[in-house]
Amino acid sequence: MFNDETIKKLYYQALLERDSKYDGIFFAGIKTTGVFCHATCPARKPKYENCHFYETAEEALLAGFRPCKRCNPMSYPKEIPTLVHEMIELVEENPEKRWKDADFSKLGIHAVTARRQFKKIYGMTFVQYARARRMGMALKSIRTGEKIINAQLDAGYDSSSGFIDSFSKIMGNPPTKSDNVKILYANWLDTKLGPMVSIADDEFLFLLEFVDRRGLEKEIERMRKRLNAAVIPGNTRISMKIDNELKKYFEKKLEKFETPIKFYGTNFQKAVWHELLKIEIGKVSTYKDLAKLINKPTSIRAIGNANGANQLSIIVPCHRVIQTDGTLGGYGGGVERKKWLIDHERNYNDIAPKE
């Protein structure tokens, strides 16, 4: 999401004027209607304060907006094949569905052809699109702080089933008085590198991830099942603390993260994560070095897998681990973010004293 006020005002003016030069440059998410549009949308223009601007359609989807039916932003910049149009309609008919190859076969669609056509037009696969739509619905109430029923209505449902199904499949069914479950609270955080979600209670932070991370949905499911927990939108002192610390981190004014965290995973994974915490800001290590430090010198691949399973992005700095040859290696939040974080920390000189 664009946070620079100058850019936002420029894009808002383009939206008011329906300036075709900006079609495909930004997508506007409209809070009052729950849709996102391209610059030349013919619909009545919203107020400035009701607009969010995104660089890609995927970002708008993950923020909980659905494609506008007036301007059909998913069709820009070219007319889309009938097959792709039908696939988008199928998602809107059943946005909480998880699509598999077998589903395409039932519809008489060849899965490989569908993936190729979709990615050629949008730069993301159909599964990524469907996931972004599903996750966006589940995350919308977290982003806005609204009650689930309000978010459900904003999402355009006449009944609560679709929205609540999407939310509960990821976050767990809302608990009742008779349930013996742990309650965790999810909060939306805007950062320089894109939106993140934190999941915490009043004692510990359990998860901190970029909302567009691949596999986030399954990661949340594994966490709540392991902890016998349900996740609901809300703030705790822990989520407020990590929000404040992240702001300071991105301003290079944080010496050390002090938010209490809780690991859940295998003993091997925990051993790796504890070693990650020892890597100082501005320094990097290698997968090979980590393997030696935990006395598992032949477990380099397993070290990489444990890094990938880290559920506390930035705080547990898996981004500071690179390949032995100096190349970056993988990162759940995307290699470009990994490079940005390493560069950010390499020049991390303006560190404020502890408060």
Results as ranks from 00 to 15, higher is better:
E217A: 03
K177H: 10
V197W: 03
M223K: 00
Y185V: 05
T176W: 00
A230W: 08
Y185R: 14
K192V: 00
V181N: 06
S239P: 14
F204R: 07
R226C: 00
L208H: 02
I220F: 01
F204N: 10
D201M: 11
L205D: 01
E203L: 00
V181Q: 11
K253P: 00
D179H: 12
T236F: 09
K182T: 14
N173Y: 03
I242V: 15
P175R: 14
F210A: 10
D201T: 09
K218S: 09
S178I: 07
E209Y: 08
I220Q: 01
R213T: 13
D212M: 10
G194M: 08
L193W: 14
R237Y: 00
K253V: 03
N173H: 09
L208P: 10
R213Y: 07
L246Q: 12
G194V: 02
I220T: 01
V181T: 13
E203C: 04
E251Y: 01
L205A: 03
E221M: 05
L184Y: 03
K218T: 09
D243K: 14
G215Q: 09
F204H: 12
R213P: 04
K241Q: 13
L193M: 14
E245T: 10
E209A: 14
R213I: 03
R237C: 04
I242Q: 06
I242D: 10
L216M: 12
K225S: 12
I199S: 01
S239Q: 14
I238K: 11
L184I: 03
K253E: 09
N235E: 11
S239L: 13
E251C: 00
R224E: 02
K248H: 13
V211H: 03
L205K: 04
N244I: 08
E219V: 09
I238V: 15
V231C: 03
K182E: 12
L189V: 11
S198E: 00
K177N: 07
R213S: 10
N173V: 10
L216R: 02
